[in-house]
Simulated assay, not measured.
Amino acid sequence: MRIARIATVLGGMAAATMLTIGNASAVIFSVEEADDAPWSTSPTSLSCVNNSVGKACFRKDGDWFEIVDEKKDGHATLVAWRSIYPESQATIRQGTIWNTAGYQKYRYKNKDFKAGWILEFRVCAGEWGNKHVIDSTCSRWKTTKS
């Protein structure tokens, strides 16, 4: 009888642990390098954010990001982004897109976001080699819809 109780308690603890792990790992994170293939048509509207290190723009039509390095400092420029489910305000996907081409080089990345979801992004400097984002260089978050 005592062994059955212990097994029940341990089984409950294991299930609770699995639920916690499952919820914590629900956010999908991606790290990608942008490339030099721009969007094929002129954008009708862009949502942009910039600071002293660079500029990042999001084009809703086609879910494109554009990133430019605007500081000769030896660091890569990146856009950090997060896709938020509007009903619960929960972050579902997030990631970074890196421009490693250098000063004044434009780079692009096409994504696939759920239409109507909230998209937040900011531009930062970082170290591509170890994927370290230098938080002190980041702009404010820009909020738009995908």
Rank of each mutant, 00 (worst) to 15 (best):
Q104T: 14
P43K: 00
S139D: 07
H75N: 15
K114Q: 12
K60W: 02
A80M: 12
V53D: 04
S88W: 09
L119W: 00
G126H: 03
K142R: 15
D61W: 01
A101M: 02
C48T: 10
I84N: 06
C48N: 06
I97A: 11
T137W: 08
H75Q: 14
Q89S: 15
E70K: 11
Q104G: 03
A37T: 15
L46V: 12
F58E: 01
N51F: 05
Y108Q: 03
R107A: 10
E127F: 12
S47N: 11
T77G: 02
G116W: 07
R107I: 01
G54C: 04
S83K: 04
R82H: 10
K55M: 11
P86S: 07
H132G: 05
A37R: 13
Y85T: 15
S88E: 13
T77R: 00
I67P: 00
A125I: 03
K60V: 04
R82M: 10
V123H: 00
D69E: 12
K111W: 04
K109F: 09
D63R: 07
Y108H: 09
A125N: 12
Y106V: 06
T143L: 10
Q89N: 15
L78M: 14
W141S: 08
S45H: 08
W98M: 03
A37D: 11
R93A: 10
G116E: 08
R140K: 14
S83A: 13
S83C: 05
W81T: 03
Q89T: 11
K131Y: 12
Q94S: 13
G54I: 02
G74K: 10
Y85L: 12
D112V: 02
T91Y: 02
C124Q: 05
K109G: 03
L119G: 03
I134Q: 11
G54Y: 00
Q89K: 14
G74Q: 08
A56S: 14
N99I: 02
W39S: 00
E87V: 14
K105S: 12
E70T: 11
K60F: 01
G54F: 01
W64Q: 06
W128V: 09
A56G: 10
V123M: 01
D63S: 11
E66R: 07
S83M: 11
Y106D: 12
N110L: 12
D112L: 05
P43W: 02
K142H: 10
E127A: 09
G74L: 08
Y85I: 11
V53I: 14
K131H: 12
P86A: 09
A37Q: 14
T41W: 09
K72H: 10
E70L: 15
A80I: 09
G126I: 04
V123A: 01
S45G: 07
P86T: 07
T144L: 04
H132M: 08
I134C: 06
W117Q: 05
E70G: 13
G129Q: 15
W39G: 00
E120N: 13
D36W: 07
C48P: 06
A76Y: 00
R59G: 00
P86V: 06
W98N: 02
